[in-house]
Write a protein that binds this DNA or RNA. Structure first.
Lengths: 219, 219
DNA sequence: AGCCGTATTCAACACTTGTTGAATTTACGT
DNA sequence: ACGTAAATTCAACAAGTGTTGAATACGGCT
C-alpha cells in the first residue's frame, strides 16, 4: 500500500537502480531483462537505456553506487584502529574494522543493502567478472588491510597472509549470498539473515585462522 | 589439431555434458545458449534436447554426474578417519577428510573437474538455486561431517559448529570459483589454480577457526 | 502565454532464444 | 540384404531480447 506510490514521481533514476540491484542480485546479469527491471521500477522500457546507456553500463552503475560508501566506511574504521593501536595493531581489531561496516549498524536491515551484498557475492564468484570487477572496485582498500595485517603479524609470510585473506573473503562472500542454506542445514538454529550473528562468529573464526599462521611453517 | 576429432563419433552424450559443464561454469545458466553448447560439443542443436530434455534438465544432469563421485569419496575418507580415531576424532583430521577428495589427487588437474568446481561455486552462491540444489545434492553427506565435528568437540554449541562450517564452506566455494583474484591481489605470489597449496592453507586456517570455539562463549 | 530543453512514452527494428515435429541417416540383429 | 528402432539432422515456430528514433508530455524560464 505504500510501495507503489512512495517514490512519488521524482528520481526515477534511483528507482531504476534499486530495481536493477534487486533483479541482478536475484537472477544474475543474464537472468534479468530490461523489461523486467522497467516493470519492477514502474517505468517505461526505454528509460533505463536513456539514463544509463546499454544494459552492461547499468550493471556497472549499480555496482559502483554503494562501493564508494563501503570503501570510505572501511577506511575510516581502519584508520581509527591503527591510530589507537599505534604500530602494533591486533589482528582481531583489523578484522573487526574490515567486517563491521558491512555487517553491523542500521543499514544492514535495509533491503537495498541486502540486495547489494547478494550482488557482490554473485560478482565475486563469477569467473567472468570476479577477477576484474572486484579488483577494480575494492582492491585499493583491501591492500591497505593487507598492509595492516602484515604489520600485526610481521613474522608471517606474505603468501600465508594472502591465503588467509582468501579464506576470510570466501566466508564473507557466502554470508553475503544469503542463500538460506545454513538455515536448512542447521534446522533453523542459524539464520543467514542474521548478519550480526554472522559477524560475531566470523570474527572469532577468522581471527583464529589468521593467528594460526604465527606458528612454524609445516607440521 | 586433435580436439575436433578426438571424440570420434561415439558418446556424443558425454560430449554434450562436458561442453555444458564448461559453458555453465564459465557463464552461468542464463549466460549459455543451447546453440553455444551444441557448437562446443560439435553436435547438432537438437541433440541436447533429444538426450536430456529441456535446458534445465541438462543443467541438473551436469550437476549430478560428479556429485555422486564426490560424495562417495568423502564418505570413504570420513569412515577411515573415524575408524582409526575411535570415539575421539581430531578436528583437523575431519577437515582433511572433507577437503582432501576435492583438492588433492590426480583428478584435480583435469579441466573437467575444474569446470565442475567452478560450477559448484556458481550454484552455491546463487540465491536462486543455492539453497535447494546444494541441499539436494550434498547435504546428506555434510550432515555426517557435522556429526563427526560434534563428536570431536562435544563442549561446543551446535550453533557455533554450524557457523564455523559456514566459514569453511565459504572459503572452499571461493577456492572453487577460480576467479584468479588472489593472483592479482598477491601480485602472483599465490595462484588460485594451485589447489594443493589452497588445501594446506585452508586446513590450517579452518582448523584453528573451529578450535577457537572451544573457549568460553563471549569475550 | 510562449518557448525550449529535458524527460518520458510509443512502436517497431533486427536478432536470438528454447523447443519440436518431420525427414533423414545410422547401427544392428535376423 | 532387409527392416526396424535408435540416433541425428534439418527447418521452422512462437516468444522474448536489447536497442533506438520519432513522437509526445512536462517544467521552468523570460
Amino acid at each position: 500500500m505504500s510501495e507503489t506510490q512512495t517514490a512519488p514521481r521524482t528520481d526515477r533514476r534511483t528507482a531504476i537502480l534499486d530495481a536493477a540491484e534487486q533483479q541482478f542480485a536475484a537472477h544474475g546479469y543474464d537472468g534479468v531483462t530490461l523489461r523486467n527491471i522497467a516493470r519492477e521500477a514502474g517505468v517505461d522500457l526505454a528509460l533505463p537505456n536513456y539514463y544509463f546507456g546499454p544494459k552492461r553500463d547499468l550493471f556497472d552503475a549499480v555496482l559502483m553506487r554503494r562501493a564508494e560508501i563501503l570503501n570510505a566506511a572501511r577506511l575510516q574504521q581502519l584508520d581509527d584502529c591503527l591510530r589507537t593501536a599505534g604500530s602494533a595493531p591486533k589482528v582481531e581489531a583489523i578484522i573487526r574494522a574490515f567486517l563491521r561496516p558491512l555487517l553491523t549498524g542500521d543499514h544492514v536491515t535495509e533491503q537495498g543493502w541486502k540486495n547489494y551484498y547478494a550482488l557482490i557475492a554473485y560478482v565475486n564468484n563469477s569467473p567472468e567478472w570476479g577477477g576484474k570487477l572486484m579488483t577494480q572496485f575494492f582492491d585499493p582498500v583491501i591492500q591497505k588491510f593487507i598492509d595492516a595485517l602484515r604489520l600485526a603479524m610481521p613474522e608471517v609470510e606474505d603468501r600465508d597472509i594472502y591465503w588467509a585473506y582468501h579464506c576470510l573473503s570466501g566466508a564473507l562472500t557466502l554470508t553475503f549470498a544469503q542463500t538460506g542454506r545454513i538455515d536448512t542445514l542447521s534446522n533453523g538454529l542459524c539464520k543467514s539473515s542474521d548478519l550480526a550473528d554472522a559477524y560475531e562468529h566470523m570474527v572469532r573464526f577468522t581471527t583464529a585462522g589468521f593467528e594460526s599462521f604465527r606458528a612454524q611453517k609445516k607440521k
